[in-house]
Design a binder for these strands. Sequence first.
DNA 1: CCACGAACACAAACCGATTTGCAAAGGAGC
DNA 2: GCTCCTTTGCAAATCGGTTTGTGTTCGTGG
Lengths: 331, 331
Amino acid sequence: MVSSRRIADVAAEAGVSQTTVSHALSGRRPVAPATRARIMDAVERLDYRPDRLATSLRMQRTQTLALIVPDIANPYYPASARALLDGVNDVGFMTLITNTDGDPEGERAALQEMVARRVDGIVMHSLATTTADVRRIVGPDLPVVVVGGLTGHTETDLVVTADSVGLGEAVKYLHDRGVRDLGFVDGPEGNGMYRLVAFLGAANALGMNVQDEWVAHTPFTREGGFAAAMSLLHGDRRPAAIMCANDLIAIGVMDAARALGISIPRDLAVIGFDDIETAALVTPQLTTITNPASLTGATCAELLLERIGRGAAAPYMTRILPTSLVLRESA
Amino acid sequence: MVSSRRIADVAAEAGVSQTTVSHALSGRRPVAPATRARIMDAVERLDYRPDRLATSLRMQRTQTLALIVPDIANPYYPASARALLDGVNDVGFMTLITNTDGDPEGERAALQEMVARRVDGIVMHSLATTTADVRRIVGPDLPVVVVGGLTGHTETDLVVTADSVGLGEAVKYLHDRGVRDLGFVDGPEGNGMYRLVAFLGAANALGMNVQDEWVAHTPFTREGGFAAAMSLLHGDRRPAAIMCANDLIAIGVMDAARALGISIPRDLAVIGFDDIETAALVTPQLTTITNPASLTGATCAELLLERIGRGAAAPYMTRILPTSLVLRESA
DNA sequence: CCACGAACACAAACCGATTTGCAAAGGAGC
DNA sequence: GCTCCTTTGCAAATCGGTTTGTGTTCGTGG
């Protein structure tokens, strides 16, 4: 109630030394039951709560994690963030969240700031930074989970979705329905382009026709998808289907089709990526590829806690999460 | 790169005292340009970055804020959070985010934890705690902005939306269209029920017929809305319109109507609250009341920074943000 | 040649906790 | 009644910075 109490106040109130209070609270050394009771009583009376700052400085751990995302307002991230927060709150961690807008410089700055704040671990949804870059910035010992990087050689723990599986399913589905002319609207250039690459691989494997002007880059937003599709659909020959790097882009593409009087899915099939909640609510309902956001967040929490428990020496871990095609109305 | 450097290392590298390094970096005392250059050089070479923990402990400010929300995965909050984060990042603040699920005990625990972590300020979307409770928990001096509490006597800074304005518009709109029988699906009982109260006020003023069994409480989710509507629409006499405490509930209500073969808006009008992005994408498009999420977050940032600048003595501030009816297809 | 100011070093206090080495008190065993 | 051990408490060092008071050195102007 009054100004915040220090451990010395508690010691005075209980008539013991600071040391004894600390030991009573942490249990690192035995304290007589009667003494402990007096101390607890004083703690209660003074409404004492240890300063986590001082504790952190002394213990060299902050019980704090960092979550670095491109944009928390992008509907994919909140679900993932929620699962992460739930997973780590149980063991007393709080989480600092920051946005980078996918900007490499922003990602670097965010990492440095988090290091300076001595977080115990970082979860990063990286678009523009490799795990090697990350490791170089944060130093060799800090637990880091990168979401969505490249598998294979990695210098952080990794959670990836098997995008190529879902994308392959989707391309095959379109192929089976007779589609041959395919477009793809990717995120901004230099975002890693994993999905574009996986898409092109699958499309090539089935001999699909993907013309260069049917591949566009745009921000991961509804507006971005709209703009990209408007120019992409204006050529004299247009693709029979457009796949997108996320659902918001796909919704924007559907906006554009509507604006141009193109019927979905009859004249144009549209497939998104992520399966955000909205995907099932739009008209027509969006056919998309599930990207298990909540599972991703929970897996990050698991990996990070395991890493914190095992130390930096243990080999890096990679978890691959499944994706799959969800058929609805847009394709 | 190597393990993290301390200020003493920089002092040694530059051949000056620790004191001079600190002064050079903070500018609190003059340092000769040549010396400063040597120091900056050493900082660069060693990749030194001051330990924010130690600085925070000494300076008694953490450059950290807390954002306490019921559920970051609820689509209303991310937009608000993003605006808040943007507003305070510019001045070097990072933000701890935590979820309470609207649980009073969770809200109390979150507040206490944030106080123990010595955050410089708190933004709380409160459902179950009064500003007086908050003030008692955090002590008299900590800057706090509560979103969505009761205006009038308050013990924190306050950002509220003028819910009654939008609700009044909506009720009047329905009245003008000849609707007399009205229902309301509110959030969980004990959530403050500001919207229910405002709704009832507006409905009474126009002589609407709001039967007790047409008012329900349910979680702020799609599933909650569905369940509430299923039982609400089962009576032998049902309302001609249902208004809801948020859009997710409203979407659930529409699910229920569809399941029961009730046509919207012909047989039942549905009006939501918040105008989340999805509202414009569902079918039929949801008529709802705008709740300017992004503006709310930005306003919280402003208020908090102003409060931090002015100190605890300045009188509490209240900002009232506009809401208004957005006509779409569901009513 | 002296006075004065600027630049900087040095040592120490401080923020608020944890942890260690050491000493005192108390009980058990003989 | 004495020794030995266990239990418990105290003082001080520590985490890594910031800040202050004092002292030293150097350069400049009178």
